Computed example of a mutant assay.
Amino acid sequence: MPTLRWLCVIALAFTATGCIKVDQTLTLNQDGSGTLDIRYGMSEQAIAQLEAMEKMGQAMQENGGEPIDMEADTPFDLDFDEAQVRQEFEAKKLEGVEMVSATSETVAGWRYMDLELSFEDLEALKQTDFFDDSELSLSKDAEGNYVLVQRSTEGDAGGDMDDMDPQMLKQMATMFAGMRIANRFVVPTEIIETNATEVDGQTAAWVYDIENDPAILTQLQDFNMRVVFSSKGASIATP
């Protein structure tokens, strides 16, 4: 789940240009294996500004200044280079997780990258960069149902935005113009309980649209996505 730290880094560079879109789906099978599908996009105007910032950073470094490395603060490759994405992933030699595909395309002034990962279990998936700033866990409740949770660890480090002035939130929201984040869990059995914003069958979704609701910025900083699903028909090892 993309978190506020790196979103702020990007937004400060791309003020009012249409920032970023992320659509992520974690599908869990009956045996605990599954797939993670991610589609992320950035406007070509924002990419042009990023390239300009990188050139400026190189010039500053040549004059003894600090380098600017935007990608170091994000879990995504901002060059949208399919071969580079795959090469960097495979270089990490992660066990139990595989990159099935990595493709890119340009649509209506936006550049997109589509990634598909397959994993043997959630522990294997948690090795990837996409969970650096969050905790992903699967447990059982008192009734024996499975409880799948992904929560942010950003709020633990301080910098809470809950008390920020509403007007300030609106001003920040303009920096994230066009940004939309959708995160989904697809579970193998009946959903019993969830705090998702949308539920469709065995899919729970959390949709964050900054343009429509600036207050969502606080949710991104300290999100806690939770879905409880039936253990009937599933056999997944839990701690």
Rank of each mutant, 00 (worst) to 15 (best):
M60R: 13
A91R: 14
Q58V: 08
V147T: 01
K55D: 12
V100P: 01
S134F: 12
V107Y: 05
G159K: 10
S139T: 13
N63V: 06
S43G: 10
D133A: 15
P166I: 12
E90W: 01
Q30E: 12
M99F: 01
L28I: 14
F130G: 00
S33I: 08
E90K: 04
A108H: 12
R151D: 14
P166T: 10
Q127G: 13
Q84T: 11
D163N: 14
A142I: 10
Q150K: 04
A142T: 03
V107C: 06
M56P: 02
K140V: 00
R39N: 09
E51M: 06
Q84E: 13
L36M: 13
E44N: 12
A59G: 06
A83V: 13
D37N: 01
G34F: 04
G41I: 07
T153P: 09
E44T: 11
A83E: 10
F130I: 07
S152D: 07
F131A: 03
G96L: 04
Q30L: 04
E66V: 13
D133P: 00
F80Q: 01
E120L: 09
R151C: 14
L36C: 02
R151P: 13
T35V: 11
L138H: 13
E120K: 11
V97N: 08
D156K: 13
I47D: 09
L115P: 03
P166W: 11
F89M: 15
A46P: 02
D73P: 03
S137I: 00
A59V: 02
R39T: 12
M164T: 05
A142R: 12
S43W: 09
G32W: 01
A91T: 08
A48E: 11
P166C: 08
Q87S: 14
T103W: 03
T74F: 03
G34R: 05
L50S: 10
M161G: 07
E51W: 05
T74H: 08
A59P: 04
I68P: 03
E44S: 01
S118M: 02
F76D: 05
D37E: 11
E90P: 02
N145P: 07
V107L: 12
Q61F: 08
Y40E: 01
A157M: 11
A59I: 06
L136P: 11
D73Q: 11
D114I: 02
D37H: 03
A124L: 00
L28V: 12
Y146K: 03
Q87N: 05
G32V: 05
V147M: 00
L136W: 04
R111E: 08
K55M: 12
G57D: 14
A46G: 14
E71L: 04
T128G: 04
D31K: 12
S134G: 12
F80L: 07
Y40R: 02
L122W: 01
Y146I: 00
Y40K: 02
G158A: 09
